[in-house]
């Protein structure tokens, strides 16, 4: 079975529909599926619910899908980097469901593992707990959170082989594996597709069973906060 597609547009063919739920990997602008986001913009698919830790920045990453009003609702933990997000949210054009970061990651992981709900102490006694079932174990309250079952996962990895085995690079791994796991269809963009057998099986971060379609392309990899130290500060 061929998983390799030539372009992001081809890789998304037949899997998009209005109102769908998309899980996206990335943290800030690190490890985001920028090529697939561009292809979503081009497709015109709309009324999207997107589960992603952040929503890009103005004009880059998922921010592009805000500019075109293709997103109806975001499920995120932090959206402070995006003025257009705030404008649409405050004017009521955009729905927002805040999730604590670890709860969001676990909701994706759980969905991918066939777990419809789990209990966590994160958010107990806060607005996050409102309306959620509470259960007590050994004197500690836990709230019920639901697994995320997405229609589509869009993910960025460093390398893939043709069977979809993935290797990520440094902190660009972040939400990509759990996002990949929770989608009915998972489309991955990578910097390099390598020959079968060239990845050490012991060093695969996500096995190809989770991956349905792969594209290779060039990434801008924009840095959000460039922080450096001077060489003379070194010991």
């Amino acid at each position: 079975m061929n998983k390799i597609f030539e372009t992001p547009q081809q890789a998304l063919e037949g899997v998009l529909h209005d109102g769908m739920l998309i899980a996206a990997g990335g943290f800030g602008l690190c490890g985001i599926p920028e090529l697939l986001i561009d292809a979503l913009v081009e497709s015109g698919v709309k009324d999207l619910t997107v589960a992603s830790n952040n929503c890009g920045v103005d004009g880059f990453g998922l921010g592009k899908l805000l500019d075109t009003r293709q997103i109806k609702k975001m499920m995120s933990s932090y959206v402070g980097e995006n003025a257009e997000f705030m404008r649409q949210y405050l004017s009521g054009e955009l729905e927002l469901e805040f999730n604590p970061q670890g709860t969001l990651a676990e909701r994706m992981r759980a969905g991918g593992c066939g777990i419809p709900g789990f209990y966590t102490k994160t958010g107990v006694g806060t607005v996050i707990a409102e309306g959620k079932e509470v259960k007590n174990w050994n004197g500690q309250d836990y709230i019920l959170e639901e697994g995320i079952f997405a229609d589509l996962s869009i993910v960025k990895a460093w390398k893939a082989d043709d069977t979809g085995n993935l290797v990520f690079r440094k902190t660009a791994r972040n939400f990509n594996p759990p996002a990949a796991m929770c989608g009915k269809i998972c489309v991955v963009e990578v910097e390099e597709i390598v020959p079968r057998g060239s990845l050490d099986p012991d060093h695969i971060h996500l096995p190809g069973i989770y991956v349905h379609r792969i594209i290779q392309g060039d990434h801008e990899k924009r840095i959000e906060q460039r922080t450096v130290r001077k060489r003379e500060e070194a010991q």
Partner: peptide, 28 residues
């Protein structure tokens, strides 16, 4: 600076000899 290597404040950082990386579900 490496765009694939940032901290939780989205600042560029570096790794050490002891460093390990993992996904966000494992992290939390």
């Amino acid at each position: 600076e490496d765009p694939d290597l940032i901290n939780a404040g989205k600042q560029t950082i570096t790794e050490l000899a002891r460093t390990s990386y993992f996904d966000s579900a494992t992290s939390f």
